[in-house]
Amino acid sequence: MKTVWLGAAIGAFAFASPASAQGVVNVYCSVQVEWCTLIANEFQKASGVKVSISQKGSGETIAQLKAEAQNPKGDVWFGGTGDPHLQAAEENLTEVYKSPKLSELHPWAIKQNTDSAGKTVGIYAGALGFGLNTELLAKKNVKAPACWVDLLKPEFKGEIQMANPNSSGTAYVAIATLVQLMGEEKAFDFLKKMHANINAYTRSGTAPMKAVARGETMVSISFVHDGVTEALAGFPVKTATPCEGTGYEIGSMSIVKGARNLANAKKFYDWALTPEAQKLEAQAKQFQVPSNKATPVPPEAPKFADMKLIDYDQAKYGKSSERKRLIARWDAEVGGLPKP
C-alpha cells in the first residue's frame, strides 16, 4: 500500500507544474489548426511574447470558458462563428476592449463590436451557400441549384444535407437567414417542404461539405469558403450562393474576462486585426473574407461583391433567447417529422 501512496506522492511532485506566467499569452483558437499554428508562430516572432495555443471548436471553447469562469486559464479567444462570442459577451465571460485598429475594419466587423458593447470584434466573415458535388450532378444529369427554392425540386429528393441546429451554429445561421428572408411562417413552411429532400441532419456544421466532397451527398447547405478548401484538395466541389440572398457568419475574437495576461492579450488582439496577421489566413488555405480592409484577398476566395447578402441582424438573432426559441420551433415542427 505504501508503494501506491508513494507513487501518488511522486506523481504529485512531478506534475503539479503549470508553465511560468512570464511573457505568455494563452489563446483558445477556434479556426483550422494550420491557421492557429501560423498565428502562434508569427505573433511570437513579431512580439516576443510566447503563445500557448489550444485549438478547439467554438462550442467546446464556450463550454470551457463557462466551466473555468471562476479561474480563467485562457486569455484570448480567437475565431469561431460569431454567435457563441455574442453569447459569451451576454453571459459576461468576456472583457470590453476597444482596439485602436477598429477604424481600419469593414463595417460588419465594427458592428459586431458595437452589438456586443465592445466585448467582441469581427476578424473574418463567410457567406452561407450551397456545396455541390459536380460529379454526382453530372451523373444524375441535374441542373445545379441557384436559389433557395430550387432545393424543393423533386430531383433533389434525398440528396441534400444540412447540419442540425441543435448542435451546429452553421445550421442556425441558415434558419435565421431564411426567417429574415421570407418571414418566420414562410421560412418554416419552406423548411418543412425541404425536409423531404434532406438525407441527414448532421451533428457538425462542416460535415455536410465533407460529405459533398466524398460524394456522400449531392448538395449541402454550408459556408461557401469551406468548399474552396475542398476543391483545392482535389475534390469535385463547386459552390453557389442563393439568388434570393443569403446570410453570413462573422468569425470573432474576444478577450477572456479575468485574463491573467491582460496586457499581452490586448497586444495579440491588436496584432490580429492587422493586415499582416490576417493574410496568414490565405496561407493556411482558408478563404473567409478578412475584416481589415487593407488585407489582400486571394483570387480563389468567394467575394462578397459577387453575392447578394441580406442585412443579417446579428444583434437580434445572436441573442440566446431568440436562438432557443427558433431552434425549439425547428425541433418541434421540422426535425421530428418522419422521413418520407
Partner: peptide, 14 residues
C-alpha cells in the same frame, strides 16, 4: 451524443 451537444452545441445547457 445528445449530452455532448447539450454541452458544446448551440444550446449550451449544462
Amino acid at each position: 451524443t445528445e449530452i455532448y451537444f447539450a454541452v458544446v452545441g448551440a444550446q449550451l445547457d449544462y
